[in-house]
């Protein structure tokens, strides 16, 4: 099962609506980076509203994807992380320090825009 990646002007939108397993997560990482390369997108929003569980490996992959995308010159914002998910991540000691977050897709796009303008 591949996760669809949508292009909107300069941005890429990803809405993750399945429970991520290790395989899907790795595939997602590859797909997203390829897509950034293809489209030359400058911003990515990953929406996690429908994700109820994130375990440590998935969290690591997400953190890595963000770092990798930024290496390729695209800003990434994670949006819609659920309270329960956030609490588990903090309990696991995963702080995702280098990752930007926003409440929902809309706010995420606004944040991206601000970040890109600042640059």
């Amino acid at each position: 099962m591949r996760i669809p990646i949508l292009k909107l002007q300069n941005y890429l939108l990803v809405s993750i609506q399945v429970e991520l397993d290790d395989q899907t997560a790795i595939e997602f990482q590859e797909d997203l980076l390829n897509k950034i390369h293809e489209t030359g997108a400058t911003g990515v929003v990953v929406d996690l509203t429908s994700v109820e569980i994130i375990e440590s490996f998935i969290a690591k992959v997400l953190g890595d994807v963000v770092s990798m995308a930024e290496l390729m010159g695209a800003k990434v914002v994670l949006t819609g992380i659920q309270p329960a998910v956030s609490m588990t991540l903090i309990d696991l000691g995963i702080h995702l320090k280098n990752v930007k977050t926003a409440l929902d897709l809309e706010q995420g796009l606004i944040k991206l825009k601000q970040e890109l303008e600042e640059k």
Partner: peptide
């Protein structure tokens, strides 16, 4: 600190 970190993760 934990609460603040968790708040940051949900995007606030």
């Amino acid at each position: 600190v934990q609460a603040a970190e968790a708040v940051r993760l949900i995007g606030s």
